[in-house]
């Protein structure tokens, strides 16, 4: 479903993603782990199409379709969803308004009819209840004054409502308390389906206890340096990234 091949990305003039290849077939959940500054968020922003992330080589396709030439909103309409590591605050735009605008814009782009107001509210209520979120929170400016954990829930709520096909979760677990971690993971698991793919970026096994990955990749110095089954995450938890740090350097040096 998602196919990344020999991707190179620079920020400013600094190369950050350096020949990264990765394939996530439909129906699978892949975890990406790696040291701070390895380029994980850069990868997720590049896939979502943020300005300033210059692709200098390689490709990324969703179901065979080139993602990299599309604007961020066009990618969203095709089903790409990024749960931000640091979600933004948008004062003056209530979450409800924001999500509804987004939902209808995506539908319009796909040639689908707009969702009716009562139908929309019904869906929001259900999704909010699943995530144990208060409807009042959705009437305030988007994320304004929310705690770190509340912002992450708001991301997952949007994800549940927008029903994307490629889900990228950038450290969705950071900032969540123990209960919230479980609730959010349930929300994510509920979205697992044979026609969806997920890329879960995290630093901790904890999240993977809830969201069981099919594959685990190690991203270091801008490329995938190791891949394996769920046991790889456990090994990383025990041993850290030392050996990858040196191997990636030697690869880079070679």
């Amino acid at each position: 479903m998602l196919n990344i091949s020999n991707l190179h990305v620079s920020v400013g003039s600094k190369p950050i993603i350096d020949g990264l290849s990765l394939a996530v077939p439909a129906g699978e959940v892949h975890a990406v782990m790696g040291p701070n500054g390895a380029g994980k968020s850069t990868l997720s922003y590049t896939l979502a199409g943020r300005g300033g992330y210059e692709v200098t080589g390689g490709s990324a396709t969703l179901n065979g379709e080139d993602l990299l030439t599309l604007g961020p909103d066009e990618r969203a309409a095709k089903g790409v969803f990024l749960s931000f590591q640091y979600p933004l605050e948008i004062p003056g735009v209530p979450a409800l308004t924001f999500i509804r605008t987004a939902m209808n814009a995506q539908r319009k782009a796909r040639g689908e009819p707009e969702v009716s107001a009562p139908d929309f509210l019904k869906r929001v209520r259900a999704a909010a209840a699943n995530l144990r979120m208060d409807m009042d929170m959705l009437k305030r400016g988007l994320n304004v004054g929310f705690s770190g954990g509340e912002k992450k829930r708001m991301e997952i709520l949007q994800m549940a409502l927008l029903e994307p096909r490629l889900l990228i979760l950038d450290e969705t677990d950071s900032g969540l308390d123990i209960d919230a971690l479980r609730i959010v993971s349930e929300g994510v698991n509920a979205m697992r389906s044979p026609d969806r793919a997920m890329l879960v970026i995290t630093h901790y096994q904890r999240l993977l206890d809830y969201i069981k990955p099919d594959r685990v990749h190690v991203l270091a110095a801008g490329r995938i340096v190791a891949s394996g089954g769920p046991e790889l995450a456990l090994e990383l938890e025990r041993e850290g990234y030392d050996k990858y740090a040196s191997s990636s350097q030697s690869v880079a040096a070679a």
Binding site: A76, I90, A105
Partner: peptide, 20 residues
């Protein structure tokens, strides 16, 4: 970018943010 990543086209995103 945040609004666009949710599928809202650029012009609409700008109008929404300006109104807010």
């Amino acid at each position: 970018f945040y609004a666009r990543s949710r599928g809202i086209p650029e012009a609409a995103a700008k109008a929404m943010l300006t109104t807010a």
